[in-house]
């Protein structure tokens, strides 16, 4: 068993070291910054004593609406992304035949342009005089242009679109792992395809669902650019506040403190969710 542990250690070592050097160490620098005081041109004053004052500031109630907004967007995005992705991943896996590889790559193809330009494409679509309003008006569904851009709708749409491949791919991988003969056996066992799916396929693909949810929810919580470009005055998210603290407000210590609280909350939330799900699904 000892030799086994060693081998796992060898597998883990390069990646973990990389994360330690190029992620954890830089983060430690920023953590020190979060304990300092603001300097007028960015950076931090550290020689006037270090404290957790910035963390206390971050707990002010004025940030609550922003936190609520972020949670709202991330939850809606995750539910939509999983809801949209599961059937298509299932379809590719079960009906893709020889074209599976191609179909999978087609999912990724739109994402090999640039993110910024894809978001611009959504702006062209969603503007008051945009493509979607044009279609709606031409077909007589609406008379006056709807305000679509700079709304909650635009943010959730942009995020869902942006994170779709991150949910389709892991779902595909785990659905494809499920042996077709197991499903066939289940079909014999249960009365309906729905039951067979619920009792066999879904539990077996649960690791994929969890992976897909993580890959969607977490980046959605931290996403800055989508709310920045597709959002508006009423769609501020916590990531956007952190961004503006670092950049326009040049208050690095406070931005860092808020960033660490976000990291902490997300890690605790995710790890405990994982624990519960693992216990139920695997254990």
């Amino acid at each position: 068993m000892m030799r086994g542990r060693l081998r796992e250690g060898a597998l883990l070592f390069p990646g973990i070291s990389w994360l330690f050097v190029f992620f954890a160490a830089p983060l430690a620098i920023i953590f020190v910054v979060s304990l300092g005081q603001r300097d007028a041109y960015g950076g931090a004053v550290l020689d006037k004593g270090l404290s957790f004052a910035n963390y206390l500031r971050a707990l002010e109630p004025s940030f609550l609406p922003t936190v609520a907004n972020s949670l709202k967007y991330a939850t809606a995005t995750t539910l939509l992304a999983i809801g949209i992705s599961y059937p298509i991943a299932y379809w590719i896996s079960r009906h893709g035949g020889r074209r599976k590889g191609l179909l999978l790559i087609l999912v990724m193809l739109p994402f090999w342009t640039s993110w910024v330009i894809r978001t611009y494409a959504w702006m062209i679509i969603l503007r008051d005089n945009g493509v979607l309003n044009g279609v709606l008006q031409a077909t007589g569904i609406t008379h006056d242009p709807l305000i679509l851009l700079n709304t909650d709708f635009a943010v959730v749409l942009g995020m869902t679109y942006g994170f779709l491949p991150f949910s389709i791919l892991p779902l595909y991988v785990s659905i494809d792992r499920v042996d077709v003969s197991v499903v066939a056996a289940a079909r014999d066992l249960y009365s309906s395809p729905g039951q067979a799916f619920r009792h066999v396929t879904l539990p077996l693909t649960m690791p994929g669902v969890i992976a897909a949810s993580l890959l969607t929810f977490i980046p959605a919580i931290g996403d800055f650019v989508t709310p920045d470009i597709l959002g508006g005055a009423q769609t501020t998210t916590i990531a956007k506040v952190i961004q503006s603290l670092f950049l326009s407000a040049r208050d690095w210590p406070f931005g860092a403190a808020l960033g660490f609280l976000l990291i902490l909350a997300t890690v605790i939330g995710t790890v405990s969710t994982l624990r519960i799900l693992r216990a139920e699904v695997i254990g």
Binding site: S62, T236, S244, A249, D251
Partner: peptide
């Protein structure tokens, strides 16, 4: 300048 920053954050986050 911090007086502006703080109020700006409040405005945007509120």
């Amino acid at each position: 300048l911090a007086k502006y920053h703080d109020r700006w954050s409040k405005l945007r986050a509120g």
